[in-house]
């Protein structure tokens, strides 16, 4: 055996440095939520306080966007779960004419830059004179969330032994019983993971949303406005922490749900 498994020092330092580069900036968000300085981004903070959490709680302009974001994320997750699982069930094992085109169509909404998806929807709403509403936001979100559920579900479908479905039919179960008693329990955690990721993606989405929301404000749009025209800067940090945690926790859960399999949660974002 060659003992070549020890990495060169230079490589180790740059690799770990790269990972730190990816993670350290987020910590600043947390630090600045406690600063006493509300006008600038002075570092180090002149003093520390927890008052901004209370201030944020009492700011009435935060709650409606939060509700809207949660509503949109929940609804688009449900829609993505239904549409994505149907696609995965159809595509996991069968080969048919046009299959590749359909996979491309599923991936496209997330593969193209958000601005194209957003501008496309905006163009369509303009042509068809559709007024902005929760539904217009939802149309965009559900579309790019389908692929997240699809990826997770299709990987699990492929990992399941195909003969367990046959075994169920063989033992007298019809298609619906097989779905309920065999497919769904085995698909469950993959769907949960896919749903978590879809929720996180939707909750945090801003680029497509700005094109489909009109005058409505989701939490990310609220944050974006605060970034451009700040007032009480640390409050933005408090909201950023809320957004961060609301997306971070589902992602972590999704990772643990799909760990150990060939599938990787979120590999397809």
């Amino acid at each position: 055996m060659r003992s070549d498994s020890r990495p060169p020092l230079f490589l180790t330092v740059t690799a770990i440095g790269g990972l730190l580069f990816l993670h350290l900036p987020i910590l600043l968000i947390f630090l600045y939520a406690f600063t006493t300085d509300e006008r600038t981004y002075q570092f180090p903070p002149p003093g520390l306080t927890t008052q901004w959490f209370a201030v944020a709680w009492n700011r009435e302009d935060i709650w409606p966007p939060l509700y809207l974001s949660l509503k949109v994320a929940a609804l688009s997750t449900v829609m993505a779960l239904i549409l994505g699982t149907l696609c995965a069930a159809a595509m996991a094992r069968t080969r048919f004419f046009g299959r590749d085109q359909i996979s491309l169509l599923i991936i496209l909404p997330i593969a193209l830059p958000g601005i194209i998806t957003g501008m496309s929807l905006r163009s369509a709403f303009s042509i068809m004179d559709i007024p902005f509403s929760t539904w217009t936001i939802l149309m965009g979100h559900a579309t790019f969330c389908i692929v997240i559920v699809f990826n997770n579900a299709v990987a699990r479908f492929r990992r399941l032994s195909g003969s367990i479905v046959e075994a169920s039919m063989d033992l007298g179960a019809n298609g619906f019983q097989t779905f309920r008693h065999v497919i769904l329990p085995n698909l469950g955690s993959a769907l949960l993971a896919g749903g978590m990721l879809a929720f996180a993606l939707s909750f945090d989405e801003v680029i497509v949303t700005t094109f489909t929301a009109g005058q409505q404000s989701t939490l990310p749009i609220w944050m974006l406005n605060e970034l451009v025209r700040p007032r009480q800067r640390p409050v933005t940090n408090v909201v950023a922490i809320v957004v961060f945690v609301t997306t971070f926790v589902p992602i972590l859960i999704a990772y643990y749900l799909t760990r150990g399999g060939a599938e990787t949660a979120g590999g397809g974002k």
Binding site: S161, S163, I164, E166, A167, S168, M169, D170, L171, G172, A173, N174, H181, V182, P185, N186
Partner: peptide, 20 residues
């Protein structure tokens, strides 16, 4: 006649036991 209505049963090569 579909498999679920045939009075025959199968022992699968990979056993196909329901893992859950």
């Amino acid at each position: 006649v579909p498999p679920n209505r045939r009075n025959v049963n199968t022992v699968f090569q990979d056993y196909a036991l329901f893992p859950h």
